[in-house]
């Protein structure tokens, strides 16, 4: 698999590696997918990178590659920001080869990472017709998670037809941020757009939302999909090739 802009792959890894340290990458002719849960089984990430999004891609037989995202992250930190990236696995090999090429083709770096033997647990994610779908700037969502984490470790997300409200409370007191739906949309990327079939009010652990925001560099927008008593879906698109989707189980008032 070859990417002209290796930085896209680095952003994917940086978006995943806090939530899951290692994961099984499923490679087939259609591209690369990954699904993994965090250690407490509260959050899940689902990655799709379609083959047509790569500059070149070949997969002669399906492979499940156990990869340490922490190690992969360290290797990718050596990549130049404009480098192209090629990842390959030779048949019956126990390692993955990561090759980086500088833009003006004068520097070639090659790394080999040992593959891991992971038991791949796969969950069935039901197609959900969400009550509410929010699109907003990913930087804005990152900022809200950071601000709300000051006040407490849970965020209540309430949607109404006017907008969406994030609130948190804790020992210090409480705080809330309300975003009004954008009316005159000049730049789609900066708009707050809410499609709502019915209002929802759900509570989530903010530390997971903040971990999801590590994937924000992938896309200027984030999609949040909510339904009562259903895991939140937080989606960052990967331009022209797929997406990173995070799911987080809600908290319930005991």
């Amino acid at each position: 698999a070859r990417l002209l802009h290796g930085s896209i792959f680095a952003k994917v890894i940086e978006g995943l590696r806090e939530l899951v340290n290692e994961a099984t990458w499923e490679c087939s002719g259609n591209g690369i997918t990954l699904q993994a849960m965090d250690s407490s089984h509260v959050a899940l990430v689902s990655l799709v990178m379609r083959s047509e999004g790569f500059e070149s891609y070949r997969c002669d037989r399906n492979m499940s590659l156990g990869i340490s995202l922490v190690s992969m992250s360290k290797v990718l930190k050596t990549m130049g920001k404009d480098d192209s990236l090629t990842i390959r696995v030779n048949d019956d090999s126990d390692s993955i080869i990561i090759a980086m090429e500088s833009q003006n083709q004068d520097k070639f770096a090659d790394y080999e990472l040992r593959l891991m033997d992971l038991d791949s647990e796969h969950l069935g994610i039901p197609d959900t017709d969400y009550s509410c779908a929010i699109k907003m700037p990913s930087s804005e969502f990152s900022r809200i998670c950071r601000d709300m984490s000051i006040m407490g470790d849970s965020v209540l997300i309430c949607t109404t037809k006017e907008g969406v409200k994030f609130s948190a409370k804790g020992d210090l007191g409480q705080g809330s941020i309300r975003l009004v739906q954008t009316t005159n949309i000049e730049k789609e990327e900066e708009a707050v757009i809410i499609e709502m079939k019915e209002a929802v009010a759900l509570t989530f652990a903010v530390r997971y939302l903040s971990m999801f925001c590590k994937a924000a560099p992938l896309s200027p927008q984030v999609g949040l999909s909510l339904s009562e008593d259903t895991p939140l879906m937080c989606e960052f698109k990967i331009a022209e090739m797929g997406h990173v989707r995070f799911y987080l189980a809600p908290k319930i008032e005991d």
């Binding site: 509260v42 039901p126 908290k251």
Partner: peptide, 14 residues
Amino acid sequence: VQMQNLLFRFFSDA
């Protein structure tokens, strides 16, 4: 107190 759900409650163990 708010209890944290686990994903298994919502997603089937395929």
